[in-house]
Amino acid sequence: METKEQIRVVVVGPRGKMGREVVRTVLSDPELELVGAVDRTLSGVEVGQALGLPETGVILSTNLNETLVEAKPDVMIDFTNPNSVRAHVEAAIEYGVRPVVGTTGITQDDLRKWDEALRKQEIGGLVAPNFAIGAILMMKFAAIAARYMPHVEIIELHHDQKLDAPSGTAVKTAELIAKERKSLRQGHPNEEEKWAGARGAEFEGMRIHSVRLPGFVAHQEVIFGGVGQTLTIRHDSITRESFMPGVAMATKRVMTYEGLVYGLENLID
């Protein structure tokens, strides 16, 4: 029987909270092979030793370009930060490596530029604000509900070390809702904020509120109001393991298409 060739993966930021889970996921999936790991400051140390895992045979490097050349990966997985990820993605595409990005704060200009570059290389890439399958379903259900209950507000709650607000998931949810309803001025027309920001951010007439506290991982409520009723759609990621099935799926699916896909929901229809 012919053995299916493994997908070769480089993980950027393997010592971060998400990066550690990604490394574990790659190591445990028989269809994936960890061939490189790039850290911002630590090099020359075996990945398993650095992360408290069994020996992997992969040595940490601080040089992404060298790793992409020497390891010859098929996919680069990056959950770092917007300031770093742009250079990482551009390098990956240049070397014909497919980026799978979970970093939020990516601009529409970035997405357009990356899509064009990926198509020139005839490879695929993925940027997703959330990899939890339940969160993707929450966004889809919210978009459907908005057709019938257009008055809506979003509350997203994350750990207090998150850098961007609102979250990428909240932004994506709002964008999906906006496609299903017209822009709507919600609340009283003479509403006045006694404290600036009390009503949250505004997008196409809906309000988005960000909570940052220790103890949270990633949570979101989409609250709809109608005559005599409310509807709340909520998703909670209790641990970062919740994102890993989506990461594994994306890593495999990105091998099958060209251009950039924005949002994991586009891969699960």
Rank of each mutant, 00 (worst) to 15 (best):
T3I: 15
E5L: 05
E5G: 03
Q6M: 12
V9Y: 00
G13M: 07
R15T: 15
M18D: 07
V23E: 13
R24N: 13
R24T: 15
P30L: 07
E31N: 11
L32P: 13
G36S: 04
D39G: 14
R40E: 11
V45T: 10
E46R: 11
L51S: 10
L51G: 10
G52Q: 06
G52H: 03
G57Y: 15
V58A: 01
I59M: 12
T62P: 13
L64K: 08
T67E: 12
E70M: 08
V75E: 00
I77R: 00
I77Q: 00
F79R: 00
V85L: 08
A92F: 11
V97G: 07
P99F: 00
T103S: 14
G105W: 09
T107W: 06
T107R: 03
D110A: 04
L111H: 06
L111M: 14
D115P: 05
E116P: 03
A117K: 10
G125V: 01
A128H: 03
A132Q: 06
M139K: 12
A143Q: 05
A145N: 00
R147V: 05
M149P: 04
H151E: 15
H151T: 15
V152S: 04
I155C: 05
I155A: 09
E156V: 01
E156P: 03
H158I: 04
H159D: 14
D160E: 12
A165T: 09
S167P: 05
G168P: 04
T169H: 04
A178H: 08
E180A: 13
R181H: 12
G187N: 06
N190Y: 09
N190H: 09
E193W: 13
E204Y: 08
E204T: 01
G205K: 02
R207W: 00
G215V: 05
F224T: 02
F224H: 08
F224R: 04
G228F: 12
I233G: 06
D236G: 09
I238S: 06
T239G: 15
T251M: 14
K252Y: 02
V254C: 06
T256G: 03
Y257S: 11
E258I: 04
G259C: 03
L260V: 14
V261L: 13
E265F: 14
D269P: 11
